[in-house]
């Protein structure tokens, strides 16, 4: 693999975190290249979501370094990381439930606002143009994800699959460089999952995105990800293309050989 440092979007070194006595993630190293779609897989409790939480600043790692777009971001608050171009979805959907679908998306692009309290009080021109721009963008995104006709509904009223989609739209609204998707297809049926994955592929092209994708379903990840990172009990088992991961003895053992442990 040719790793040129200017193409590096995210680099994680020696990332570790402990919850009490549990080493949820232990000395993890990996990097994500610009434009890559990278899969992060592993059995239940492997520490995948915890990695996301450390990347986005929800958890503070007990050791290690997170380098995003050439800067160490360990000390930044979650909203500051978001402003630098990191957006995420949540495994246990976290929409703004009582707000409308449209408002959810608009909140996603809230970080882009440059007007302040005074502009919104005194109807300045800046206020109007920005508000209009963001509205158009939000509607475009909703259209893309087939949610435009639901824009005035409360988010809590959407069916489960659409809530997941809305989370992606909300994350996209901020025009991120790096999109972190935590099991976006969880709870969807087969054809819904397929649709979603094609959509993600399309969005990735349109917005020139880099994506880190957590997914339970190994087959699915193998299908779309160029590069896969396998995690188990907080440590990296394997990293590489699907061929390499598929044939790795360690990975096979982690996924299939659970009963062998006893």
């Amino acid at each position: 693999m040719s790793l040129s440092s200017e193409n590096l979007l995210l680099e994680v070194k020696d990332l570790s975190i402990q919850f009490g006595g549990l080493k949820a993630v232990d000395s993890l190293n990996f990097s994500v290249q610009k434009g890559q779609l990278k899969g992060l897989i592993g059995p239940n409790g492997a520490g995948k979501t915890t990695v996301f939480n450390m990347l986005t600043g929800v958890y503070q790692p007990s050791r290690g370094e997170i380098c995003f777009r050439g800067q160490i971001i360990n000390r930044l608050k979650p909203h500051e990381r978001c402003r630098r171009g990191m957006a995420r979805t949540f495994q246990n959907i976290r929409l703004f439930r009582e707000l409308t679908v449209l408002d959810n998306v608009l909140l996603g692009s809230h970080q882009k606002l440059t007007y302040g309290i005074f502009d919104s009080l005194f109807f300045t021109k800046k206020f109007h143009t920005e508000q209009k721009q963001n509205l158009d963008k939000a509607l475009h995104l909703l259209n893309l994800f087939d949610l435009a006709n639901k824009s005035e509904l409360r988010a809590a009223g959407l069916p489960y699959g659409q809530q997941r989609k809305l989370e992606i739209v909300r994350a996209l609204a901020g025009e991120p460089r790096l999109l972190l998707l935590d099991e976006p297809a969880a709870g969807m049926n087969h054809s819904e999952t397929d649709q979603l994955m094609t959509l993600i592929g399309r969005v990735r092209k349109e917005f020139d995105l880099t994506i880190l994708l957590i997914e339970h379903d190994m087959k699915l990840v193998m299908g779309i990800c160029e590069d896969i990172l396998v995690l188990d009990h907080g440590v990296k088992l394997e990293e590489g293309d699907s061929q390499k991961v598929r044939t790795s003895a360690k990975v096979i053992e982690a996924y299939l050989g659970i009963e062998n442990e006893h």
Binding site: T56, G57, V58, K77, P78, H79, C82, R83, A87, R88, F90, R94, L95, F96, R97, E98, L99, D103, L106, L107, G108, S109, H110, Q111, L113, Y115, G116, I117, D119, S120, L121, F127, E130, Q131, N134, R170, A171, G174
Partner: peptide
């Protein structure tokens, strides 16, 4: 003032904090 504020995109940040602080923070709301 409150109306202008609360029902502009700017004011959505208040509602975002009410609905889900972690999500709001992740969406760039300080």
């Amino acid at each position: 003032s409150l109306w202008r504020l609360c029902y502009s995109q700017y004011g959505l940040s208040f509602l975002g904090v009410r609905e889900d602080e972690i999500a709001a923070e992740a969406m760039g709301v300080p």
